[in-house]
């Protein structure tokens, strides 16, 4: 067998423990708290979004469902998110559904975990709640062409009136 110094062996055990703790916390949050990255594997024909029921222009925007939770339907296209201004309540489950009309885009509301890539041919879905009311930008964070940095929207998070 190979020669390993006892100190190095101890170090390898410490490293192993470190990895177990880190992977353990990830597995715990994934399965106990159901925290997963957006992974819904749902296809859509980006060339005919306007003909689809969900992503036709008239159906975009914020809708409140019977249980009080909110669904936001959006389209990303060079160089904007449509609708360009939305209002959602704080502390309320939000389901974001978004599709790209053209190239790859990314969506992120800073200081929240509301983030996903928007890939032509697929519907991205993110479920989250935003705890803090305020004015937020919603940025495109994947290079989508020479106007990439002009691609952003405004999100107003209103104080949640139902719980107060």
């Amino acid at each position: 067998m190979i020669h390993i110094d006892p100190w190095e062996k101890t170090w390898v055990y410490i490293v192993g423990l470190l990895i177990v703790v880190m992977l353990g916390s990830i597995l715990y949050t994934a399965f106990a708290n159901s925290i997963h990255p957006p992974s819904n594997v749902e296809t859509i024909d980006s060339a005919s979004l306007h003909l689809s029921k969900e992503f036709a222009e008239d159906n975009l925007g914020v809708k409140t469902r019977a249980d009080g939770s909110v669904t936001v339907t959006m389209v990303a296209a060079r160089y904007g998110f449509y609708p360009q201004r939305i209002e959602v309540p704080a502390n309320t489950p939000i389901r974001f559904r978004i599709a790209s009309l053209d190239v790859v885009h990314g969506l992120h509301i800073p200081e929240t975990n509301l983030a996903t890539m928007v890939i032509p041919g697929f519907v991205s879905e993110v479920n989250t709640t935003i705890p803090k009311p305020g004015e937020y930008p919603l940025f495109c964070n994947e290079y989508c062409g020479l106007g990439h940095h002009y691609m952003w929207s405004r999100v107003t998070v209103t104080p949640d009136t139902t719980t107060n």
């Binding site: 990895i19 992977l23 990830i26 990255p37 992974s39 890539m117 928007v118 519907v123 879905e125």
Partner: peptide, 24 residues
């Protein structure tokens, strides 16, 4: 691809596992 919609969560978790192993 964690933030990409076209791969299911389980595959991402499996790759995430290997990602931590490569710290060793």
């Amino acid at each position: 691809l964690y933030m990409d919609p076209f791969q299911a969560a389980g595959w991402k978790l499996l790759h995430g596992f290997g990602t931590f192993m490569v710290a060793i």
